[in-house]
Structure formats: structure tokens, C-alpha cells
Amino acid sequence: MLGLNKGEVRLVPHATDWEEDFIEEKELLSEAIGMLVVDIEHMGSTSIKGIAAKPLLDILVGVRSMDDVTKFDKKRLKEAGYYHLGRVEIEGKVVFAKFTNLEELTKTHVLHIVEYGAEWWLKHTFFRDYLNEHPDVAKQYEKLKKELAATYPDNESLYAEGKLKFVDEVLSKEKTRSFIINEGNLQVRELERVDKVLLSKWLTDPEILRYYEGRDNPFNFEKVEQEFFDDEEDVIRCLVEFSGIPIGYVQIYIVEGEEKLAYGYDDSSQNIYGMDQFIGESAYWNKGIGTQLVRAMVTYLTEEKGADRIVMEPQTWNERAIRCYEKCGFEKVKLLPGNELHEGEYRDCWLIEHNSKTGVGA
């Protein structure tokens, strides 16, 4: 049973129903504040398999901006038992707690509200995931927690302080991001789940959708999850950064089978890659960055992936994009009539190609 009085430090054996409790609470929170939240995840020791924990459910709530917390419906949260802990001042985090007994200040749930994908979000999720992936380390953590709980049964602050060194050592194992392209101001790295906020932002912007996916086809978070993260296609999906700022998306994939034949490539020995991309921040349009990106991706595909040819299918009306690709060595190969459904119409596309042996289209 969940519940811990103020200042009390008490561990209980791991309970399998903690995950069910979290799922129920997530549904409750989604109804109360879901419109302002990117994601809600289980965190803390109750989310780590097989180890003892305080009977207190820690819940991580990710928002687009901390300013969104001021828009929460506090009345609905209070009706659900949650109160804002205004005295808990942690930079980059706002804390709410659920109480079953206000006289004893018996807490059952704690909400850690942070910016989705920012430092706190990454720390909490990495620590949880690392311990779940390394049961031996999780048992070491459990042993430390039991020793601290026995030493400080009535001092939550000293108990928490005693865990810091261990937590920091685990967090130090977090890998730094690796880039498949890192040239001057331009970086390209593989997509991470935290990037869904950016993708949803870009793919709900009519200005972006006019060129990519269509203004009648916006992507909410659920659709981004399905199309970019749950899809099992053999596609390498990447985020594009410029001077450390995320500005766009690029994906690459091997062209094979029926698609290869439809393009007219009968030589099965050729290594052919397809590529799609967009700059999601319109402030970075018309600055040569798209051309820089395409050239860098061509170099990566030919030198690192051994691509004989690289193909794309821009819609015929998108002359600005086609000029960019032509500057990068692509040439029109053939017209693909009615090739792509875009804003309710089947649009003509050009099959364009970069040939690594000639440096241009065949």
C-alpha cells in the first residue's frame, strides 16, 4: 500500500502492482492536464524492477515549456488529491504531491514536472533505464538505500543526500550524442524519442506542411510516435542541428525490391539509397543550409554507406527544392505521374538521382 508520512524513511519490498498504480494515475492526470503535457512516465525506485523502495509513486511529467505549468487546472489537480509544494524550490522543476492524510502529511504520489527532453527529463529516465538494464547495479543501489534507511529512518534529507554519489556515478555513464555528420555549424544525429516535441511542432506548422506531408495531414504526438518511432521500416531517421540548434529532419533508406524496379534500376548489384529531408525552422530557409545539408548527406552516403546512386522524389511544383538538389549534383531521371498524395491530390514528382561514379545523375 502506498503512503509515507512527512520525514519518514521506510522501504518496502518491490510490488508488481506499482506499475498498475502508475497506469491508473497516468490516466487520471491525462484527463486533468493532458492537453498541456508531452508525456507522463514512471520514475524513481518504484519504476526499477525487483528492488525495495519507499511506498511512494514518483511520476515524471514532461511539458513543452515550464511556463505551461501556470496553465494547469489547479482545481482539478486538487480534486484528484494533488497540491503544489511551493516550498520545494528546484531549478527547472515544479513539484506536486498527492496526500491521503493532510494532518500527518501522508504522501502517496509525487509529480516531478520538468521540461520534456531537457536535463531533468534525461537524468531521471536514464537512471531508471540504466538500472533496469543492469540488475546488478540496481541491487547495489538497493543495498545502499537499505543502509541509509536504517541509519536515517526519520531524516529524509540525509537519506537523499547519501544517495547522491551513487546517482552521479550512474549518470556519468550516459553516452554523449554521436553525430553521423559534424561539419562546421552543421550536425546530423540519429533521432531520439525526446525529439518528438520538435517533430510535432514542425509537422503542425502549415508553412512546413505545405512542402512536407501536406496541410491536411498534421502530426500530433501520437502520430509522430507511430510514424517516426514505432514504425519498423528499415529507415535511419535523423535530426538536423545548426550551431547546436535543432532545425530539421532527414531520413535515409535502402531502395530495393519493387521500388527499385519501378524506378527502372534492373541491376540488382547497385547499392541505391533514398533520402528525404526538410528544414523545420523557417527562419533558417534561404540561407544555403538546405544545400549544405544535402551535400553533406551525399558525401556520407557515398563514402560511409557505399551508395552507387542516391534518389529523391520532389513534387514537380517545388522548384526551389529541385534547384537546391541540382546544385548538389542531382539530375532529373524521369517523371513519376500522380506519384504522391498531397493535400487531396495525386501530385506528379520527378525521380532525381545522384550517381556516385559520375558525381551527377546518369
Rank of each mutant, 00 (worst) to 15 (best):
E8P: 04
R10T: 10
L11H: 00
T16W: 05
D21W: 06
D21P: 00
L28I: 11
E31I: 08
I33S: 11
L36R: 14
D39C: 07
K49Y: 14
I51H: 09
I59H: 04
D67S: 08
T70C: 14
G81C: 07
I90D: 02
K93F: 02
K98E: 09
F99L: 15
T106I: 08
K107L: 11
T108M: 06
Y116M: 08
G117Y: 10
G117I: 11
L122H: 07
T125S: 12
Y130T: 05
H134M: 02
V137C: 10
Y141N: 09
K146D: 05
T151G: 00
V167K: 02
L186I: 08
V188D: 05
D195L: 07
L199F: 11
W202E: 05
D205S: 12
P218I: 13
P218Y: 12
F228V: 01
F242W: 15
G244M: 05
V250S: 03
I254L: 14
V255L: 13
L261I: 11
A262M: 11
G264V: 06
G280E: 01
E281W: 12
I289G: 06
E303D: 14
I310P: 10
V311A: 03
Q315I: 10
R320F: 05
G329S: 03
E331A: 09
K334C: 04
I352W: 05
V360N: 05
